[in-house]
Amino acid sequence: MTENVDEAGWDVEPGDEMEPMVQAVGRLLQVCREAAGMSVPDLAAALGYSEALIRKIERGSRIPRPEFLDKVDTLLKAQGHLRAFMEDMRRARYPKKVRDLADLEERAVEMLLYGSHNLHGLLQTPEYARALLEMRQPSYSTDVIERGVAARIGRKTVFEREPAPTLSFVQEQVTLERPYGGKMVLRRQLEHLLEVSQLRNVTLQVMPTDREEHAGAAGVIQVLKFADGTAIGRSSGAFNGRPVSGPKDLRILELRYGMIRAQALPPRESQSFIEQALGRL
Rank of each mutant, 00 (worst) to 15 (best):
E13D: 12
E13C: 01
G15Q: 11
D16T: 09
E17I: 10
M21R: 13
M21H: 11
V22M: 01
Q23S: 12
V25Q: 02
V25A: 07
G26E: 01
C32Y: 07
C32H: 13
C32S: 10
R33S: 06
R33W: 03
M38Y: 12
V40P: 06
P41Y: 14
L43D: 00
A44N: 14
A44W: 11
A44I: 10
A45N: 02
A45Y: 10
A45R: 15
G48P: 10
Y49F: 15
Y49L: 11
S50P: 09
S50A: 13
S50F: 14
S50C: 11
E51R: 15
E51M: 13
E51D: 15
L53M: 15
L53T: 15
K56E: 03
I57H: 04
I57S: 03
R59I: 06
G60W: 09
I63W: 02
R65N: 04
R65K: 14
P66V: 08
F68L: 12
L69K: 03
D70I: 10
K71T: 05
K71W: 07
K71D: 04
V72N: 03
V72Q: 03
D73N: 03
T74A: 09
L75G: 06
L76Q: 04
Q79A: 10
G80C: 11
H81T: 14
H81M: 09
L82S: 02
L82E: 00
A84Y: 07
F85K: 02
F85Q: 01
F85I: 04
M86V: 01
E87T: 08
R91L: 05
R91K: 07
R93A: 09
P95C: 00
P95M: 02
P95E: 01
K97G: 07
K97D: 06
R99S: 00
D100F: 07
D100W: 05
D100N: 08
D100K: 14
L101V: 04
A102I: 00
E105V: 08
E105G: 03
E110Q: 11
L112S: 04
L112D: 01
Y114T: 02
H117M: 13
H117P: 01
N118I: 08
N118Q: 12
L119R: 08
L123S: 01
L123E: 04
T125F: 00
T125Y: 00
A129T: 00
A129Q: 00
R130Q: 04
L132G: 00
L132T: 02
L132I: 10
M135H: 13
R136C: 01
S139A: 10
S139Y: 13
S139G: 06
S141L: 04
T142L: 15
T142H: 11
V144L: 06
E146G: 02
